[in-house]
Amino acid sequence: MFAVETLNLAKRYGKTDALRGLNFTVNEGEIMVILGPNGSGKTTLLMILCTILKPTSGTAKVVGIDVVEEGTKVREVMGIAFQEARGFWRHKPSSILRFHASMFDIDPAKRQDLIERTMKDLELWESRDKMFMHLSGGQAKRLETAKVLIQQPKLAIFDEPTSQVDLRGKRKIWDKIRELRDQGSTIIVATNEVREAEYLADRVTILHEGNRVVCDTIPKLKDAIAGGDIVEVDFEDPVPEKLVQDLNGLGGEVSLLPESNQLRAKVSKAEDWVPRMTSASYVAGAKIASIRITEPSLDDVFLHFTGKALADQP
């Protein structure tokens, strides 16, 4: 049984299709990262899974329970950290967490200790006496994460969990999310941050304009790009056109960056291509200043599968 399964899931707002017949599965105990720009349908999918929204058509199941037919049962086994933190403005963080814990039957004997520990882990303890409305954006976001962590649901959903959070805080939240997975929860993280996806994902689903474009592990997605490695070569002088043609003959895809002495090559195996490239450069009399070898980022993967750069999306 899948932890999450959707079949031809569609959601329409007026004339806009947010989801267009999405088929999507998440295995039990994995971290599934949904990667997509704003407007790709990520949040709509999550809102349907946590029963806030009803789909226009199709089905969605969480641990085998239909989200439309048995919404209350679904809500008993899932927890969500919203993209925009939601809390009672005039309550303190600990009071918000106590209310949340009580709604999900967290053992009263362990409740206080769990709340205190989680608040300390997420560096919220210092802000325990502030009202929610006085928390900073990052603190409110961490409180949102804390709700799900104390709940330890079967399915935990995090919608852009580290937006507005500083770098140190991001790492903390990511580690806690992985810890939650190790404790047995299935996790869905929606993000448009490549670094977050790379750090967390067991598998990645790329959503684009309400459709699933591709879903796999990160290494497999990167391997799927023609020319898995990227080699950037800086020359001391302008690169002769003849050299570019020769290098293109070595396999891969070589391009000369405009108004610079730099070549960028997407090649299958950098370790085979680089020695041949240096020989060709020596023959052409082009002096190499530096060579950098990188693997493609998820941004490149997104670009490859959708034809658009993740960062350029609205």
Partner: peptide, 17 residues
């Protein structure tokens, strides 16, 4: 306030009808 500030969406994720 709950409708406009989104708290209502939080309530809608709680296990209550």
């Amino acid at each position: 306030l709950a409708l406009r500030e989104g708290v209502i969406q939080y309530y809608l994720t709680l296990p209550i009808r």
